[in-house]
C-alpha cells in the first residue's frame, strides 16, 4: 500500500483521498438506510464486501425494502453493473497479470478506479493509480457501511449535504482531459443524447449501455493515401467533408 502510494504522483493521490472521503460518507448512508429499512445488520456489510458496487447495492436494498421480488432486485442490480464489462475492457491493462491479480483487480474495478486509471499514461503509473484507488476505496466504502449500519438510527441526509452532486462532478473532473478531440466530442454528444432520451423508458443502467452507439458517430475516417479530403457519410445521417486535421487532433 505504501509502495503504491509512492508510485502515484502526489496530486493524484490527494484526489483519490477526496473521492474516498466522499464515498465513505455515501457508504455510511447506505449502511444506515439499509438498517432503517428493517434489513438485518449483516446484509449491507456483506453486500459491500462481495458486490462492492454502490449504485447496485442501493438498488437491491431499495427494491427489497419496497417489497419488490428478490429476482427483480438482483436483475436491476446486474443491469446497473453491466457497464463494468466495457470499463474492464478499456482499462483492463491496469489490473496486471496473474490469476490472483486478475481476480482481485477485477473486483476493485469501479467507475472511480477506472477513471483514475484512464487519465494516467499506460504502464506503471496507470497500474499504481488503479490499485491505489481500488484498495483505498474498498477500505473507505466498507468502513463507512459498517459504521452506518452500526449507528443505524440516524440516517444522514446525503441529499441535504449535496453528495449526490459530488459523484457526477468527480467523474466529470476526471474525464474532462480526454474530451479534447472533436471526434470524441461528437461520439459523446450522440451517446449522451441517446442515454437521456431513453432514460425515462428503460431501467437504470441500460441507457448508459445504449449510449455506446455514439461511438459509431466518432469513427475515424478510413485513411486512404489517394484522397486527402474525402466525403464521408457519418452515422447521424449527415454527409460531411472530413479532412486529415480531425484525426491529428485525436491524441
Amino acid at each position: 500500500m505504501l509502495a503504491l502510494w509512492r508510485a502515484v504522483d502526489p496530486s493524484t493521490a490527494r484526489s483519490i483521498l477526496v473521492v474516498c472521503a466522499a464515498d465513505g460518507i455515501v457508504g455510511f448512508a447506505f449502511g444506515a438506510i439499509s438498517i432503517g429499512a428493517g434489513l438485518p445488520l449483516w446484509l449491507p456489510t456483506l453486500l459491500s464486501v462481495v458486490v462492492f458496487a454502490g449504485a447496485s447495492q442501493f438498488l437491491l436494498v431499495g427494491v427489497i425494502a419496497s417489497g419488490g421480488s428478490l429476482l427483480a432486485a438482483v436483475a436491476a442490480g446486474l443491469l446497473v453493473n453491466a457497464r463494468l464489462l466495457p470499463l474492464g475492457l478499456a482499462v483492463g491493462d491496469a489490473v496486471g497479470r496473474g490469476w490472483w491479480r486478475t481476480l482481485l483487480g477485477s473486483h476493485l474495478l469501479t467507475d472511480e478506479s477506472a477513471a483514475f486509471a484512464l487519465i494516467q499514461p499506460r504502464g506503471e503509473h496507470r497500474r499504481a493509480a488503479f490499485w491505489l484507488c481500488g484498495v483505498a476505496l474498498f477500505l473507505c466504502w466498507n468502513l463507512g457501511v459498517v459504521a452506518g449500519a452500526a449507528v443505524g438510527t440516524t440516517i444522514p441526509d446525503t441529499d441535504a449535504l449535496g453528495l449526490d452532486a459530488a459523484f457526477p462532478a468527480i467523474i466529470l473532473a476526471l474525464v474532462l482531459p480526454i474530451l479534447r478531440s472533436i471526434r470524441v466530442g461528437r461520439a459523446v454528444a450522440v451517446g449522451v443524447v441517446v442515454a437521456l432520451v431513453t432514460s425515462p423508458f428503460l431501467p437504470a443502467g441500460v441507457p448508459v449501455l445504449l449510449a455506446l452507439l455514439g461511438v459509431l458517430a466518432g469513427l475515424p475516417p478510413r485513411r486512404s493515401p489517394a484522397t486527402v479530403i474525402a466525403p464521408t457519410a457519418t452515422t447521424d445521417g449527415t454527409t460531411g467533408v472530413t479532412g486529415t486535421t480531425e484525426s491529428e487532433t485525436a491524441r
Partner: peptide
C-alpha cells in the same frame, strides 16, 4: 482509439444520467 472513445462515451452518459435522472 475505439476503446478510448467508448469509455469516454460511457462515462459521459453516466455523468449525464446520474446528474439528471
Amino acid at each position: 482509439e475505439l476503446l478510448d472513445t467508448g469509455v469516454a462515451v460511457l462515462f459521459c452518459a453516466l455523468i449525464a444520467t446520474a446528474t439528471l435522472v
